[in-house]
Write a protein that binds this DNA or RNA. Structure first.
Lengths: 193, 193
DNA sequence: AATGAGAGAGACAGATCTGTCTCATTTCTT
DNA sequence: AAGAAATGAGACAGATCTGTCTCTCTCATT
């Protein structure tokens, strides 16, 4: 028997879909209230403001992304470098899904450009946490310049996310994987000589 | 003696600054009217809607970007490949400027996610025109897979623009240039063997 | 000097969005 | 079963934004 979802859960579930698919600014509170079948009072009892909901949405997304990293670590238990390569490939493949609408953190940061806006701050913090973890992996893998490599991978991955979002039809996961591996190999080669 | 700017010119000039610095959705018509010292009627005599102004802003930006490409071609008249490398380095260096706020085309596309929104369409068209030109350069340079390389450079450059925008303090033009050259070299090496 | 286009100032309408409040009803706890 | 807490429905206020309209003034052309 299915558990009945609480108002808060329904709101968050609908918000996640709508915010990601149509953008945070484009989706109003009324829309979320209507589609989640919740009363306005119930909404504001669970979230003080819309921004609070946005922060909760970003937090949910952060957890999912960290889950992806954990997944990659489990899939390639023997080599951290293999975990890195797998993570890049795995996420790039997912960008090809028709539901892919870019990186929620980047999109939200762009939608709220004021650097001290709570949504902007939360988006950046989440993004940074993820990439700090990846940098740790690069360091753990014993690569000579984990910092530089992570910077490069972050640029490449971030751009891939944008291309997959805006120029979906032209995005080729293989091109991305090739490029990512070229960057990793390039650094490994520089270290070997 | 300085020429007096017409209302339209003043509006466009102010709009370019404000839209780029603070985002299109965040800047209202009233703000632009006030800061350009123009009457509301004068605004709507020159631009039918706000979207029309946004399209004009993007068109202006497109011209500037194409100007950057022309600049790169002039700076390295002998080798198209050198033009490509120069263009990447030149634009990456400019991303380090404190006024840099990311790629206007990507930002606007994210701000208006509806794919048939006139601002979204104009942003995408402009972006595609630029990268089609770069692909032509890669082809002209005699590279084996100009398409793939351009895709990779577009991902890397787009991500660099985002990093330079959102994580400004951590952006290193040198890391970008290294990565871009690694991608170019990687393809050249693959072709040579 | 006369005329007409362009421009400034700002009130106003209409739409939209966030957030508040009331009240009846349902659901959970004990 | 009874009281307490959560929920649904929706009116309403207040802010903000786009776009319209009127009226006046300036300036260039003739």
């Amino acid at each position: 028997m299915e558990k009945k979802l609480t108002a808060k859960e329904r709101i968050l579930r609908v918000a996640e879909q709508l915010f990601y698919r149509e953008g945070v600014r484009a989706v109003g509170i009324d829309r979320i209230i209507q589609e989640s079948g919740v009363a306005k009072a119930s909404f504001y009892r669970n979230f003080a403001t819309k921004d609070d909901l946005v922060v909760a949405y970003l937090e949910l997304h952060r957890e999912r992304v960290m889950g992806n990293i954990a997944h990659a670590r489990q899939q390639r238990p023997d080599s951290v470098l293999a975990q890195l390569r797998y993570l890049m490939e795995y996420t790039a493949d997912r960008m090809k899904l028709p539901t892919y609408r870019g990186c929620a953190f980047m999109n939200t940061a762009v939608e709220f450009p004021e650097t001290d806006h709570p949504d902007h701050v939360k988006a950046l913090d989440s993004r940074n946490e993820v990439w700090n973890h990846i940098e740790d992996m690069a360091r753990e893998a014993g690569l000579p310049k984990p910092r530089e490599l992570t910077e490069q991978l972050r640029m490449l991955w971030s751009g891939a996310a944008m291309v997959a979002y805006i120029n979906k039809e032209e995005f080729k996961p293989q091109s991305f994987s090739d490029a990512a591996n070229a960057l990793i190999d390039s650094q490994a080669a520089a270290a070997a000589k």
